[in-house]
Every structure is written in structure tokens, then in C-alpha cells.
Amino acid sequence: MYVICKVDEKKCNGCKLCIWACPDPNVIVFDPDSKKISIHQARCKGCGLCVAACRQKALEIDAV
């Protein structure tokens, strides 16, 4: 089963901790207007490092 990371935008406060924890480039994208992140899911390996880094519990690993 393939797993990827999903974000709950309502909980995200744009702190960027997840971006600094992700071993893969260009996966987590920060939108300077909304001050929230989005995830390029085709590039995500589902490792969960971002989930562990997020203090807002805005991220989870789920089936594709």
C-alpha cells in the first residue's frame, strides 16, 4: 500500500517546521499569501517526518 502525507489546512499556521524536516525536495510548498503549506503528493514518500515535526497536528499519513 502506498501512503502519503495530507494536510488539514484549517490547522496549519504556516510555521514551516514540516518543510525543514522533509528529506525530499519540492514536496511541501509554502504559499506566502495564505501563509499555509500544501503538499505535492506525487513527490511525497510518506516517511512521516513532517508529521512528527508539526506541533499543530495538521498533518497525517494516509493511504493514497
Binding site: 522533509c22 528529506p23 525530499d24 525536495p25 514518500k45 517526518l49
Partner: peptide, 14 residues
């Protein structure tokens, strides 16, 4: 850095 083949969660890749 572009998409790479290192393992999920690799500390070296980060």
C-alpha cells in the same frame, strides 16, 4: 535538488 531515489525518511537526504 530534484526528486531522488534515497529512502523515505533518510537523514542524509535531508
Amino acid at each position: 535538488l530534484e526528486e531522488h531515489p534515497l529512502c523515505a525518511g533518510c537523514g542524509l537526504a535531508l
